[in-house]
Design a protein around this nucleic acid. Structure first.
Lengths: 209, 209
DNA sequence: AATGCAATTGACCAGGGTGGTCAATAAAAG
DNA sequence: CTTTTATTGACCACCCTGGTCAATTGCATT
């Protein structure tokens, strides 16, 4: 990250880093191609090395950018008031989903990094901290009394988390293959609410359904 | 697939195709490397082209082999007797899991093919037929009366399927990262049974729990 | 108009990997 | 001993890689 890049306006910086993150997310560090990155970003090969020292530091800087960006943009509005686990999951899904729509490259980059091995120690630690932070947000300050008494809380939490992850995964797959129209998003969330209602009926005491 | 390959004993044929399928599964058709395939299979580059016409026909033959193999080996013992949806999912998970353990390369190959685009029309149709067949096995001849009356059957079926897919996905991820010891498989299935019991309590009428 | 500096290009490099070939062998069969 | 089959790996032309750099363009200041 040389001064030339820093003195670019924010929008252009974002474009370039997004191009890099998209490429890294798709191919991983080693098989990612700097040639494809410059093509995505709409610039010449020379500029990439005018802005960054090497492919490696480009990756590092992109990861830095992504982690900071997520910290600043996604983790707000999550001030965890007391709520049931289903409501918590639903709210976080909405937040995650909106963030993904607004910043797909960052989301995919961070997701791919989660499964990859080409991080240095410091990056691994930071990434783990992020994951732990997310866990905390997911589980902190829950109202667990809403659960039926005849089912173990920990079990219920696990089952619900798996269910929602399965649902969102299916939706992601559908959107990828069928290219869901933007107008259908409302239907997507209506459907989601329907399933949330059903889950409340299954997992919660009557007074909370 | 030349005669030379066909006159090989079955075991060696399997080894070679498994090597190819593993490589294709990991990298997709284009980025799969014939050099790595021969290394995996423990033979020389020349032999590959002594056995197969080209990389493309190798892929085609491997897919053929995989589809036939699955039809013959996995889809037995699934004679769908009347049972609840949870029991059905559990049984199919067991079958799928055993098959994965016995034939990981085939499993991963077929899974990867499901997400890839480099199939010709005939292969796409065959693959879709396989998927449809699986759906039928999953949903045919179910005892839906076991479900609680206050929850829609279709909704319940969806929720359960997502839950189980979430669980197995988490297990797969754990096994990949931590390299689950084979001795722990019993524990894996004990845990699985625990969650199945919980799900019965949630979704079924009392007399079926 | 002239100068100087920053931004920008893309041809170019050596290195490595690609799918595929083939003359040379080794092994087996006749 | 000869013929056929199995097997090797060096080799090919080609493509892509991360990275460099001389040359050019654009712009601001004199």
């Amino acid at each position: 990250m040389k001064e030339a890049f820093i003195s670019l306006d924010e929008k252009r910086q974002y474009e370039i880093l997004a191009a890099a993150m998209g490429e890294f997310a798709e191919h991983g560090f080693t098989k990612a191609s700097t040639n494809r990155i410059v093509k995505r970003a709409g610039m010449s090969k020379g500029m990439l090395y005018y802005y960054f020292e090497s492919k490696r530091t480009l990756f590092d800087d992109a990861l830095d950018f992504a982690l900071v960006h997520i910290e600043n943009h996604m983790l707000d509005g999550i001030a965890s008031e007391k709520e049931g686990f289903i409501e918590r999951c639903a709210r976080l899904s909405h937040i995650k989903y909106r963030y993904f729509m607004a910043h797909p490259a960052i989301s995919q980059f961070i997701t791919s990094v989660y499964f990859s091995d080409d991080l240095n120690e410091e990056q691994k630690l930071r990434n783990e901290a992020l994951i732990e932070n997310r866990e905390q947000i997911l589980f902190d300050n829950l109202d667990l009394t809403r659960f039926r008494d005849d089912i173990d809380h920990r079990t219920a939490v696990k089952l619900i988390a798996w269910t929602i992850s399965g649902y969102t995964r299916e939706m992601e797959h559908m959107m990828k293959t069928e290219g869901m129209a933007f107008s259908r998003f409302d239907a997507y969330f209506d459907e989601f609410d329907h399933y949330l209602d059903a889950m409340r009926k299954l997992y919660y005491k009557e007074e909370y359904q």
